[in-house]
């Protein structure tokens, strides 16, 4: 499965954010995963402790928000819910639709603790 590869890419991004923000520790990571992203949330959860071991993000919580599938119809203009193997327009049945959401494979945010700077701000 490719979830480990995705998780390693996630870890690289988290590490880059941590360095940029001068973080001491990453406490939580939130993802947005669409139903058509091709990635299984549970497999990502399983891979996360392996990918983050020994890093600033070791032990951080991985939160996954799933993003529902929505399509916009090119025939009637309607916007409707869809399912992964039924992406036709829910209003008129046309298969000429585009996806509004549901393909997300996104790092949404990173929660971190900063190194103490000594400033009393």
């Amino acid at each position: 499965m490719h979830e480990l590869a995705v998780c390693q890419a996630l870890m690289d991004q988290v590490a880059a954010v941590a360095v940029r923000e001068a973080a001491q520790r990453v406490t939580a990571v939130t993802l947005q995963i669409g139903d058509l992203s091709g990635v299984e949330p549970q497999l990502l959860q399983d891979a996360w402790p392996i990918a983050s071991a020994g890093s600033l993000a070791a032990g951080a919580a991985l939160r996954i928000e799933t993003v529902p599938l929505r399509v916009r119809c090119l025939a009637c203009g309607g916007e409707t819910d869809a399912s992964p193997n039924r992406l036709v327009c829910g209003d008129c049945g046309s298969f000429r639709t585009t996806l509004i959401s549901g393909e997300e494979l996104m790092l949404k945010n990173v929660e971190l603790e900063r190194a103490a700077t000594g400033d009393a701000a």
Binding site: V17, E21, M106, K108
Partner: peptide
């Protein structure tokens, strides 16, 4: 802790 929005 601080939450940094990434959206990447």
């Amino acid at each position: 802790s601080e939450a940094v929005t990434v959206l990447q």
